[in-house]
Computed example of a mutant assay.
Amino acid sequence: MFEKAENKVNEAAGKAQEVFGRATDSHDDTIKGATRKYASQAGYAVRDAADTVRDQVSSNPLGGLAIAGAVGVVLGFLLARK
């Protein structure tokens, strides 16, 4: 829960920095602000995806186990190739 609040603060700070950069015609601040804002938004997406996967696996553990096994086999083949 703390991470969500931290992401909100970082997103707001990034947006403010981006607006400040545009107002002062500072490309460096604009880019840093946009990067900070979009990184926070990406954090939301990753957290939502992890929550969805966790919910799906808890409601259907055998399906989750089958998918995890399939991913393991694919990664094994990819890493074992020369």
Rank of each mutant, 00 (worst) to 15 (best):
K8V: 09
D55C: 08
L75V: 15
D51M: 07
F77K: 15
A16G: 03
R47V: 09
G64P: 01
N7C: 04
R22N: 08
K15C: 05
A70I: 14
E18D: 13
I67H: 02
K37L: 08
A16I: 05
L75N: 12
G69L: 10
D25Q: 15
R36F: 02
I67D: 00
T35E: 14
P61V: 07
F77G: 14
L78M: 15
S59L: 12
A80V: 12
G64S: 03
I67V: 14
E6V: 13
G63F: 05
G72V: 05
G43C: 03
Y38C: 08
Y38R: 10
G43N: 03
T30Q: 05
P61G: 02
D51T: 11
L65E: 03
L65S: 13
T52F: 08
T52K: 14
D55H: 06
V46K: 05
K15V: 08
R36V: 06
G14R: 00
T35N: 09
L62Y: 06
D48I: 06
D29M: 09
G76S: 12
A34T: 08
K82D: 03
E3F: 04
G64F: 02
D25P: 02
F20N: 01
P61L: 07
V53T: 13
S59Y: 01
A50I: 10
A42T: 12
T52H: 10
N7D: 13
A34M: 10
V74C: 04
L78Y: 07
R81G: 04
R22Y: 04
G69V: 11
G63L: 13
A45G: 12
T52G: 11
R81A: 09
A34C: 08
E11F: 01
K37A: 14
Q17C: 05
A13R: 07
A5G: 13
Q41L: 12
G76W: 06
D55N: 15
L65P: 00
A66T: 12
A13P: 00
A12T: 13
L79T: 15
K82M: 08
G69S: 10
A23H: 06
Q17Y: 01
D51C: 05
T24A: 11
A16E: 03
D51G: 11
G33L: 00
N10C: 10
G14A: 07
D48W: 05
A66V: 12
N60S: 12
K8D: 13
A39T: 10
L62T: 14
S58V: 11
K82P: 02
K82C: 04
M1W: 06
K82A: 07
V74P: 01
L78A: 15
R54A: 14
G64N: 03
K82F: 02
G43H: 00
K82E: 02
I31T: 12
R36A: 10
A34H: 05
A34P: 00
A16C: 09
A16H: 01
G21V: 01
G63P: 01
K32L: 13
